[in-house]
Simulated assay, not measured.
Amino acid sequence: MKKFNQFNKGMIMYKLLAILALIVPVSAVAQTTQEKGLAIAKQQDAKNSGFKDYTNDIVMTLKNAQGQESVDYLHSMTLEVTAAGEGDKSKLVFDKPADVKGTAMLTYSHGLQPDDQWLFLPAVKRVKRLNSNNKSGPFMGSEFAYEDLSSPVVEKFSYNWLRDEACGEWQCYVVERTPRYEYSGYVRQVTWIDTKELRTVKIDYYDRKNELLKTLTQSGFKLYKGKFWRAETGKMVNHITGKSTVMVSSNFQFGTGLTAAGFEPNSLQDTH
């Protein structure tokens, strides 16, 4: 009888474990914080895939520590790249004021390889390839570094999930990512990604001394094509200098028929 009772207890325990296995995924039990961080990054990347291309307009406002402002008007073009380990191609073109009109930057985002970036300056009428060792410099006097303007590529970083917490009206994953590519100006970044739609709400950037350098806050998210979320406003604040840059985006157009030919370096001289 004793052996029979032990057998029954063993069967009950086995059934309970089997039920728990169905309710709780193995990954939820076995995942390390690094694996969870990487999984979130991969889910976010997959959610944003398939847009093909899009264009948008940007108003960029630069403010110094004394509150003085200058405003630039740009338009942007992005071409999706689906090759493994590669990021998208993007082009930023200044429309006004007159002293920067026609200035354009082209970015080919990569994973572990340095991004390729070119800058066209109308005053010198030539396309200049940017040094891959110096992507931490400011883009056109703004608080956005050149490396901030490349598209996200999962392979660029190693990840560590820190916690979940409220971020405004949403709940967010807080994930630390450490650059794996050479010459980054940051030792690490901490990102807030909403758990429902996987939108990047905030990024804290830490400099090479591991001090908080800048914070990017994104807001005004809108849904396009029933799938793709884009932020209307991105505000970058430099905690060291007190300067800030706000980019307000509008007029998003998806599937405009952009081709790779329009993202060749020589195309920067024909910016319209």
Score class of each variant (00 low, 15 high):
Gln31Tyr: 10
Gln113Ser: 03
Pro114Glu: 08
Tyr14Trp: 04
Phe228Glu: 01
Gly37Gln: 07
Leu130Gly: 02
His239Cys: 08
Lys227Gln: 07
His239Glu: 09
His272Thr: 10
Lys227Phe: 01
Val81Gly: 02
Gly185Met: 05
Ala123His: 05
Leu22Pro: 03
Gln43Tyr: 02
Ser76Thr: 10
Tyr108Pro: 00
Asp57Val: 02
Gly185Ile: 04
Ser142Tyr: 01
Glu165Phe: 05
Val201Lys: 15
Met77Ile: 01
Ser249Asn: 09
Ser49Glu: 07
Asp204Asn: 12
Ile203Gln: 01
Gly10Pro: 08
Val127Met: 14
Leu16Gly: 13
Ser27Trp: 11
Ser267Trp: 00
Leu92Asp: 05
Leu119Gln: 02
Glu143Asp: 15
Lys222Met: 10
Ser90Leu: 06
Thr215Cys: 07
His110Asp: 08
Asp99Leu: 08
Thr259Leu: 07
Gln68Gly: 00
Pro179Arg: 03
Gly137Asn: 11
Glu143Ile: 06
Ser249Lys: 12
Phe139Met: 13
Leu17Thr: 01
Pro97His: 06
Glu211Gly: 05
His239Trp: 12
Ala83Thr: 05
Val175Glu: 00
Asn238Asp: 10
Gly137Val: 14
Asn133Phe: 11
Gly220Ile: 11
Ser136Asp: 14
Ser244Thr: 12
Gln66Lys: 15
Gln68Ser: 01
Asp115Leu: 01
Asn64Tyr: 07
Tyr224Ser: 09
Lys91Leu: 13
Val127Ser: 14
His75Gln: 04
Lys128Leu: 07
Pro122Tyr: 11
Glu182Trp: 02
Lys9Cys: 06
Ser250Cys: 08
Gln218Asp: 12
Gly255Arg: 06
Asn210Arg: 14
Phe51Asn: 07
Lys3Tyr: 04
Gln66Thr: 10
Gln31Ile: 00
Glu86Trp: 04
Asp88Gln: 04
Thr217Gly: 10
Lys101Phe: 03
Ala39Cys: 03
Pro138Ile: 11
Asp95Leu: 13
His272Val: 10
Leu62Trp: 03
Ile240Ala: 15
Gln113Asn: 05
Val26Glu: 12
Leu74His: 03
Asn238Leu: 02
Ala231Glu: 10
Lys225Asp: 12
Leu216Ser: 09
Lys128Gln: 09
Phe228Met: 01
Val127Thr: 15
